[in-house]
Amino acid sequence: MAAATLTKGKRRRKSNFGQDNLVGYLFIGPWLIAFFLFTFIPISVSLLLSFTDYNVLANSGDFIGLDNFQRMFFEDRRYWRSVNATVKYVVFSVPLRLVFALAVAMLLNTYRRGVGVYRAAFYAPSIIGGSIAVAVMWREIFGNDGLVNFTLNLLGIEGPNWLGRPETAIWTLIILAAWQFGSPMLIFLAGLKNIPKHLYESAEIDGANSLQRFLRITLPMLTPIIFFNLIMQLISGFMVFTQAFIVTQGRPLDTTLFYALYVYRRAFEQNEMGYASAMAWVMLMVIAVLTAFVFRSSSYWVHYEADEGT
């Protein structure tokens, strides 16, 4: 019976194939056009540019083979500082943000009155996430006479110069990232709601405490969601730009000179579009390899309920 409806469905889909497609393409047409014009073509051009010394002001450049990559890896000290800053940022901010997101999602996964308001309130920072306004606010909070130092002062502690010290500046940006946990939190929340209640109930009957329930039920059941969030956050972590651009300008001592910021500097302030394109492509490759690695590793730790169901 099930098999019969399946083949029937298939046949019907086949007969309408052309028309369905046309309507579909019409609907995504505007997006497709914009995608080719503003994403695909520029990306392809940048791949070509990465093998040239194209200068924006001169509007010309010569093919120089792999020179850009040679320069990047072996001659440019600031390049490695930017790699350093970015890796540090990703290594700390991604796990922090995910932990925060999960913790808050679990708090909000209850049926108390007004919980909707809290959900919206916690999500709000992410909507205004990469915005200039938040970055400017962050400057004020961590500034010399900012909120953080004011509070510390009340406690009798003299706060350091957060944004001015090479040891602390990047942490203000990592904390900013952790604070913007809204979108992974929403996804965690949806995941939590999908965990069948009966699992918890039977665990409770068996005498499992809340820590055991979290470790043995919540975490395993959430692994597909963690997996998804991890990949999304990894990618966006490597592309971090606005925060450093506004809050620290890459200073001090290049400790917050994130990769994307350095690419921007080279491309738009130095007009070295060829070199910047090469840097951007290296970043793309690194993100691709990392993502592939996480995907590969997923078979060891991501638990899909459906696998056991069939």
Binding site: L163, R165, V247
Partner: peptide
Amino acid sequence: QSYEDSVARGD
């Protein structure tokens, strides 16, 4: 003014 302070204040 210390350089550190000028960095913290930004441009």
